[in-house]
Simulated assay, not measured.
Amino acid sequence: MDTSQSPSILRRLGLTAAVLTAVMLLLEASAPAREPELDAAEAWNLQISKLGITPVYPPTEDLHVGDVWALLIPPALSRAAVSQEPLLTRAIRLGHSDQREAILASAHRRPVFAEVATENPALRTPRLEHSDLPESQRIPLALVGFPSVSRTLHAERSGRLSTLIGTLSGSASRSVVEEISVPEAHGYGIEPLAAATALQAWCRTRPGLCQEGTIRTLLSFALGREMVTPEARVELLMVSYVFATRHIRLTRHRSDDGQADLETNPDQVAGNQAKMKVIRASSSGVEAQNVFPRPVVIGFRSVTFAFESLPQGRSR
């Protein structure tokens, strides 16, 4: 190779390295692997609803079996899509029907097995409600095994560019894994038939309240007139079963990978061909654990009445 051309070759290779670095920066800045970020409520509701449970966000202890709610269903959304939205943005609580006797009757019909002590004191949840009532009149909690629910987002991008110097190619990818786990959960409630009967009885004592026009007016006051359109459906629901926990674990892990390659054109670099590669990889993770002093409700099941189908009921 002619040494008089070495500075020129070095300049070209230096320029190539700079171009290659710029390509990597562009890939990092424009990679479509950046999936739209879900806010906390959307992520929580999406994961919990996968289990066939109406999610509650933020989790609260102020939701009970026997609660009666008015529910708004926008015309453009399916019931499954509506259940993924925060409850307070689409419903209002109308009242409560005391279902203690029905809850106790349902619980007493179930067999009770011996308990196994947990080694973690933070996860020890009393099986009976905290009350001054005799033990036989206190509501027992049933153990619920919640599977970990995860969501994986993956996207990638690649490109190829021919230049005078040579051929540039690059690719970038991003993976995001979100996981919600509930190490220990409990539940209590009544059968759907009992809940449907209780909702009908509750409405019979409040004929002026259980009217579609009245419910639409109340929803308009609470949610806004622009949401309660004539096309939107309104329903009544009674909570028939609740799922509660004292421990919630949220994790999020993100990994990024990318590389850029250059294969030079021998005709432009004094008859010599060079290959260069830049590889980039990174990962990050966040974990949040919440331990509550008392159980908080994370989801529920209910029976619903659509006004056009009264007095027929529907469980979900």
Rank of each mutant, 00 (worst) to 15 (best):
V228C: 07
H130Y: 06
T214S: 12
P126K: 13
R151C: 02
L123P: 03
A155Y: 07
V176Y: 01
L199V: 01
I190K: 01
P230G: 03
E226R: 14
H186L: 05
R127T: 03
R160N: 11
P126C: 06
D132M: 07
P192F: 09
A222E: 10
V177I: 15
P192V: 11
L123E: 14
F146P: 03
T229G: 02
L128I: 05
Q211D: 07
P134W: 05
V149Y: 04
Q211H: 00
A142Q: 13
H108R: 14
L123V: 04
G213T: 14
S148K: 12
A172Y: 04
G224Q: 07
I190E: 00
R216M: 05
W202V: 08
S169T: 13
R216K: 08
L164M: 04
L199W: 08
M227F: 00
G170A: 15
Q137E: 15
F113Y: 12
A172F: 08
A117M: 12
P183H: 09
G145Y: 11
S106F: 12
G213E: 13
R216W: 06
L164R: 08
S181V: 05
T217W: 02
R124N: 09
C203P: 06
H130N: 11
E156I: 02
V116N: 08
R124A: 05
F221H: 09
G224E: 06
P207E: 03
Q211F: 07
A198T: 15
G224L: 11
S136P: 00
L168V: 15
H108M: 09
L168P: 06
R216G: 04
R127W: 00
G166I: 01
G213V: 10
E191F: 06
A222Q: 08
A142F: 14
L218S: 04
R160F: 00
L209K: 01
E226L: 00
G213F: 07
L199K: 06
A142H: 11
T167M: 14
T217G: 07
I190S: 02
Y188V: 01
T205L: 15
L199G: 09
L128P: 02
L199T: 07
G189P: 08
L219I: 00
L133N: 01
V228Y: 04
E226F: 03
F146Y: 09
G224I: 02
H154M: 04
E184A: 08
V149S: 04
W202P: 04
I180M: 12
S150M: 08
P147A: 10
C210F: 07
H186A: 11
G224D: 01
T152V: 14
V177M: 13
R110F: 04
P111F: 12
L223S: 04
S162L: 10
F146N: 00
T197R: 12
T229A: 05
E231Y: 00
H154Q: 14
L199C: 10
W202Y: 15
E179F: 02
L141T: 05
A198E: 13
S173H: 05
S162P: 01
A122T: 06
T197Y: 03
Y188R: 11
R151K: 15
A142W: 01
I139D: 06
C210A: 11
A155D: 13
P147S: 09
M227W: 01
E178Q: 15
A194M: 11
R225V: 10
R124Y: 03
T197N: 13
G224T: 10
P147F: 13
R124V: 14
S169H: 01
C203K: 03
A201L: 14
G187N: 13
E135H: 04
T217V: 00
A196H: 01
V116H: 14
